[in-house]
């Protein structure tokens, strides 16, 4: 009977590894990134006194969400790159895999640990951002109400509406969700690269490269699909970029959302699906390579 138990897939085991990974990452002081984010926000608001509230809110949103996107990508890459090599160097992987644990459970546990960390960091950054923006919005609103106390109701309404329109918008949170998916994708891809990389530096360098190429992937793909006149070397190169690299530009919806473009729900769902699909495929590839790895 106990044999049955060991053979089966065990979420509890994966969870134990995930929590352990989360603690490990936390101890590596990755949360300093959050401190940096807070400083950036504070720095922004000090510096922004010279702008009108519309300009201020626009910049605040752009900087916060841009920083969130970059920091989460950085956390995903740097956090994941070390996990497996570190365990192999320290031989902790031996003690873990010498127990009746399938290798995919070990990898999933590690990955979920990173995803958990990313979720927590992005949640904290969003909370900070929302609080700052909300406080600024309230301040501007109160000031306006005070200054315009004698103005006709219509003008006051228009002013209040303008502030509301420039301020916090719930759609931004869907943008944040897409940022999270992008970070998940990058974490899974980093995990894959780290299963065959010889050094952590190699993994990080490859991933930085992937990050930039990934943003150009859509352009390369279009060129490949539509430009028939290019030479075969160029076309092969473009084809490889289009097929192997993820389309990271697809996850930059937040730019549009901040600009006030309404993104249809269907489109959002499709983007999310693409992100989940990429994450799954990279995890699968990582597992495949890791199963053949000599430890």
């Amino acid at each position: 009977m106990s044999e049955r138990l060991h053979r089966g897939f065990s979420p509890a085991r994966i969870f134990a590894i995930s929590i352990n990974t989360l603690i490990e990452l936390t101890r590596q002081k990755v949360f300093y990134v959050l401190l940096l984010f807070a400083l950036l926000l504070i720095g922004c608001s000090v510096f922004m006194a010279r702008f009108t509230f519309q300009q201020e809110f626009q910049i605040l949103k752009d900087i916060s969400l841009g920083a969130m996107s970059i920091f989460s990508a950085l956390l995903a890459i740097v956090g994941t790159a070390r996990l497996i090599p570190q365990d192999i160097d320290d031989r902790t992987v031996y003690t873990i895999l010498a127990k009746p644990i399938p290798r995919f459970e070990y990898l999933l546990g590690k990955l979920f640990g990173v995803l958990l960390l990313l979720a927590i960091s992005i949640a904290l950054m969003s909370a900070l951002f929302v609080v700052v923006l909300y406080v600024r919005e309230r301040t501007v609103l109160n000031e306006t109400l005070r200054q315009m106390s004698r103005a006709p109701g219509e003008q006051l309404d228009a002013a209040v509406n303008a502030i509301r329109a420039a301020g916090l918008n719930i759609d931004i949170l869907t943008g944040v969700a897409v940022i999270y998916l992008k970070a998940c994708l990058l974490a899974a891809l980093t995990l894959f690269v780290s299963t065959f990389a010889t050094t952590n530096i190699f993994t990080v360098v490859v991933m930085v490269f992937v990050y930039f190429i990934g943003h150009l992937q859509a352009t390369a793909r279009e060129y490949w699909l539509e430009e028939q006149s290019a030479g075969w070397v160029a076309r092969t190169f473009l084809a490889i970029v289009a097929l192997i690299f993820p389309d990271l530009q697809a996850f930059n919806l937040v730019d549009e959302i901040v600009a006030g473009v309404a993104i249809p729900l269907v489109l959002l769902a499709k983007t999310a699906l693409l992100g989940i699909f990429y994450t799954a495929i990279y995890t699968l590839a990582a597992t495949f390579v890791f199963y053949g790895k000599e430890l």
């Binding site: 859509a218 793909r221 279009e222 289009a242 192997i244 389309d247 697809a250 473009v261 983007t271 495949f288």
Partner: peptide, 27 residues
């Protein structure tokens, strides 16, 4: 594994392409 990614790339290509066209029309 890379061959696998390539195969997946071929599979995802039409969907991804359609998606970025939709993104464009949305914006």
């Amino acid at each position: 594994a890379f061959a696998m990614l390539l195969a997946f790339g071929v599979m995802k290509l039409p969907a991804e392409h359609a998606l970025s066209l939709q993104h464009r029309s949305a914006s």
